[in-house]
Simulated scan of single mutants.
Amino acid sequence: MNEEMKFNYQHKLEQLKEYFGFDFVGLALVQPAENQFSLKWEYSVGNISNRYKKVTLQSGKGVAGTVFKTGKAMLVQEVEELYGKSDLFTYPIVVAENIKSFGAIPLYKYNRVKGVLLVGYREEKRMTCEEFERLNIEIGPRFGPFYNKEMVKH
Protein backbone atom coordinates (compact mmCIF):
# COMPACT_ATOMS: atom_id res chain seq x y z
CA MET A 1 0.00 0.00 0.00
CA ASN A 2 1.48 3.37 -0.97
CA GLU A 3 1.94 6.27 1.42
CA GLU A 4 -1.06 8.18 0.05
CA MET A 5 -3.38 5.22 0.56
CA LYS A 6 -2.25 4.72 4.17
CA PHE A 7 -2.80 8.33 5.24
CA ASN A 8 -6.33 8.99 6.51
CA TYR A 9 -7.13 12.44 5.13
CA GLN A 10 -10.66 12.51 6.52
CA HIS A 11 -9.41 11.83 10.04
CA LYS A 12 -6.70 14.49 9.78
CA LEU A 13 -9.23 17.07 8.53
CA GLU A 14 -11.52 16.20 11.45
CA GLN A 15 -8.60 16.70 13.86
CA LEU A 16 -7.76 20.12 12.38
CA LYS A 17 -11.40 21.22 12.54
CA GLU A 18 -11.72 20.15 16.16
CA TYR A 19 -8.35 21.56 17.29
CA PHE A 20 -8.86 25.01 15.72
CA GLY A 21 -12.66 25.21 15.73
CA PHE A 22 -12.88 25.84 11.99
CA ASP A 23 -16.33 25.75 10.42
CA PHE A 24 -15.02 24.06 7.26
CA VAL A 25 -11.89 22.12 6.31
CA GLY A 26 -11.43 20.79 2.79
CA LEU A 27 -8.76 19.12 0.71
CA ALA A 28 -8.63 19.50 -3.07
CA LEU A 29 -6.35 17.13 -4.95
CA VAL A 30 -4.88 17.48 -8.42
CA GLN A 31 -6.50 15.10 -10.87
CA PRO A 32 -4.49 13.07 -13.39
CA ALA A 33 -2.93 14.81 -16.39
CA GLU A 34 -5.63 13.56 -18.76
CA ASN A 35 -7.96 15.91 -16.85
CA GLN A 36 -5.63 18.83 -17.72
CA PHE A 37 -4.46 19.33 -14.16
CA SER A 38 -7.85 20.11 -12.71
CA LEU A 39 -8.46 20.10 -8.97
CA LYS A 40 -11.34 18.44 -7.22
CA TRP A 41 -12.46 18.78 -3.61
CA GLU A 42 -12.01 15.18 -2.44
CA TYR A 43 -12.39 15.47 1.34
CA SER A 44 -14.17 17.85 3.69
CA VAL A 45 -15.38 18.27 7.25
CA GLY A 46 -18.03 20.75 8.37
CA ASN A 47 -19.61 21.01 4.94
CA ILE A 48 -23.20 22.27 4.84
CA SER A 49 -24.01 20.34 1.65
CA ASN A 50 -22.41 17.93 -0.78
CA ARG A 51 -22.14 20.57 -3.52
CA TYR A 52 -18.39 20.80 -2.88
CA LYS A 53 -18.04 17.34 -4.49
CA LYS A 54 -19.21 18.80 -7.81
CA VAL A 55 -16.65 21.61 -7.82
CA THR A 56 -13.81 20.96 -10.27
CA LEU A 57 -11.36 23.75 -10.96
CA GLN A 58 -8.76 24.45 -13.61
CA SER A 59 -5.39 25.98 -12.75
CA GLY A 60 -5.85 29.61 -11.76
CA LYS A 61 -9.61 29.34 -11.08
CA GLY A 62 -11.18 29.52 -7.64
CA VAL A 63 -9.32 29.23 -4.35
CA ALA A 64 -7.71 25.85 -5.06
CA GLY A 65 -6.85 26.74 -8.66
CA THR A 66 -5.20 30.00 -7.61
CA VAL A 67 -3.14 28.36 -4.85
CA PHE A 68 -2.24 25.53 -7.26
CA LYS A 69 -1.10 27.94 -9.98
CA THR A 70 0.87 30.30 -7.72
CA GLY A 71 2.15 27.70 -5.25
CA LYS A 72 1.59 30.27 -2.50
CA ALA A 73 -0.61 30.19 0.58
CA MET A 74 -3.64 32.46 0.63
CA LEU A 75 -5.21 34.21 3.63
CA VAL A 76 -8.51 36.05 3.20
CA GLN A 77 -9.97 37.63 6.32
CA GLU A 78 -13.03 39.21 4.67
CA VAL A 79 -14.23 37.45 1.52
CA GLU A 80 -16.83 40.02 0.40
CA GLU A 81 -14.52 42.97 1.06
CA LEU A 82 -11.76 41.42 -1.05
CA TYR A 83 -13.79 39.87 -3.88
CA GLY A 84 -17.09 41.77 -3.78
CA LYS A 85 -20.45 40.05 -4.10
CA SER A 86 -20.40 40.08 -7.90
CA ASP A 87 -17.08 38.18 -8.19
CA LEU A 88 -17.91 35.45 -5.69
CA PHE A 89 -19.22 33.13 -8.42
CA THR A 90 -15.58 32.53 -9.44
CA TYR A 91 -14.98 30.99 -5.99
CA PRO A 92 -17.55 28.16 -5.92
CA ILE A 93 -16.33 26.47 -2.71
CA VAL A 94 -16.62 29.80 -0.87
CA VAL A 95 -20.19 30.25 -2.11
CA ALA A 96 -21.25 26.59 -1.64
CA GLU A 97 -19.99 26.51 1.94
CA ASN A 98 -20.82 30.15 2.84
CA ILE A 99 -17.20 30.80 3.84
CA LYS A 100 -16.49 34.38 4.92
CA SER A 101 -12.87 34.09 6.15
CA PHE A 102 -10.31 31.45 5.13
CA GLY A 103 -6.76 30.28 4.64
CA ALA A 104 -5.50 27.94 1.91
CA ILE A 105 -2.16 26.14 1.83
CA PRO A 106 -0.50 24.44 -1.15
CA LEU A 107 0.60 20.85 -0.50
CA TYR A 108 3.62 19.70 -2.48
CA LYS A 109 4.90 16.34 -3.64
CA TYR A 110 7.96 15.98 -5.86
CA ASN A 111 8.32 19.79 -5.97
CA ARG A 112 4.87 20.23 -7.55
CA VAL A 113 1.61 21.34 -5.95
CA LYS A 114 -0.51 18.20 -5.65
CA GLY A 115 -3.20 19.44 -3.29
CA VAL A 116 -4.69 22.44 -1.53
CA LEU A 117 -5.80 22.49 2.11
CA LEU A 118 -8.59 25.01 2.78
CA VAL A 119 -9.73 26.00 6.26
CA GLY A 120 -12.41 28.55 6.90
CA TYR A 121 -15.07 30.20 8.96
CA ARG A 122 -18.60 31.30 8.15
CA GLU A 123 -18.05 34.70 9.72
CA GLU A 124 -15.74 37.51 8.67
CA LYS A 125 -12.38 38.25 10.28
CA ARG A 126 -12.24 34.94 12.17
CA MET A 127 -9.14 33.76 10.30
CA THR A 128 -6.25 35.84 11.60
CA CYS A 129 -2.61 35.94 10.53
CA GLU A 130 -1.64 34.43 13.88
CA GLU A 131 -4.08 31.54 13.52
CA PHE A 132 -2.97 30.91 9.94
CA GLU A 133 0.63 30.72 11.14
CA ARG A 134 -0.41 28.30 13.93
CA LEU A 135 -2.08 26.14 11.28
CA ASN A 136 1.15 26.01 9.28
CA ILE A 137 3.03 24.97 12.41
CA GLU A 138 0.38 22.41 13.40
CA ILE A 139 0.38 20.59 10.09
CA GLY A 140 4.15 20.72 10.24
CA PRO A 141 6.48 20.05 7.37
CA ARG A 142 4.41 17.02 6.30
CA PHE A 143 0.74 16.38 5.65
CA GLY A 144 0.58 12.70 4.88
CA PRO A 145 2.56 12.13 1.69
CA PHE A 146 2.73 15.90 1.05
CA TYR A 147 4.82 18.71 2.44
CA ASN A 148 3.57 22.25 2.86
CA LYS A 149 6.48 24.27 1.54
CA GLU A 150 8.25 23.99 -1.77
CA MET A 151 11.54 22.20 -1.29
CA VAL A 152 14.57 24.33 -2.08
CA LYS A 153 16.85 22.94 -4.77
CA HIS A 154 20.58 23.23 -4.13
Rank of each mutant, 00 (worst) to 15 (best):
F20C: 09
Y147A: 00
G140S: 05
G84S: 05
F22K: 10
P145L: 08
F146A: 02
E3I: 01
C129W: 08
K17S: 13
K114Q: 13
Q58M: 08
G144T: 00
A96C: 09
F102S: 04
A64D: 01
Y9S: 07
D87T: 10
E42R: 15
K153E: 12
F22V: 02
L107V: 11
R122M: 06
N98S: 14
L13R: 10
A96G: 05
E138G: 03
T66G: 02
M151R: 11
N136V: 02
E34P: 07
K149P: 02
A28S: 14
Y83G: 03
G26V: 02
E78N: 15
P145Q: 02
S38A: 14
M127I: 14
M151V: 05
K17E: 09
V67W: 00
E80H: 07
L88F: 10
T66D: 00
Y91G: 03
D87S: 14
R122C: 07
L57K: 13
L16T: 01
E123L: 06
K17Y: 09
L118M: 07
E150G: 01
N111K: 13
H11L: 09
R51E: 14
N98D: 11
F89M: 13
N98P: 02
G26N: 00
L118T: 05
R122K: 15
F132N: 12
P32C: 07
M127G: 06
F89G: 02
G115C: 00
E138N: 06
F143K: 01
G115V: 01
K125T: 09
A104H: 13
K12L: 01
K54F: 10
A33V: 13
Y52F: 13
F22G: 04
E123S: 15
N50F: 03
G46E: 01
I139E: 10
D23P: 12
I137Q: 05
V95Q: 15
V94Q: 03
F22L: 11
M74H: 10
V95C: 03
F7P: 03
C129I: 03
F20D: 07
A64Y: 04
P145E: 06
H154A: 06
Y91L: 14
K53I: 00
M1S: 14
R51I: 08
F22T: 05
G46Q: 02
L16K: 08
C129R: 11
V152E: 13
Q77G: 09
Y19E: 11
T128Y: 07
S86I: 06
L16R: 03
E78A: 14
P32H: 11
E130F: 12
E4Y: 04
T56V: 15
R142Q: 06
L16P: 00
M151N: 07
E34R: 14
V119Y: 03
L75C: 04
P145F: 06
A28M: 10
P106S: 09
L29E: 15
M151Y: 08
V76I: 11
A28I: 08
G26Q: 04
E130W: 02
N47Q: 15
R134L: 11
N50K: 11
K17D: 03
S38C: 09
G144S: 08
R122V: 06
V119R: 10
L29Y: 03
S86Y: 07
F89K: 13
V95N: 11
A96K: 13
M127R: 10
E80F: 05
P92T: 08
M74V: 04
S38L: 04
F132W: 15
V25A: 10
E42H: 11
E18D: 05
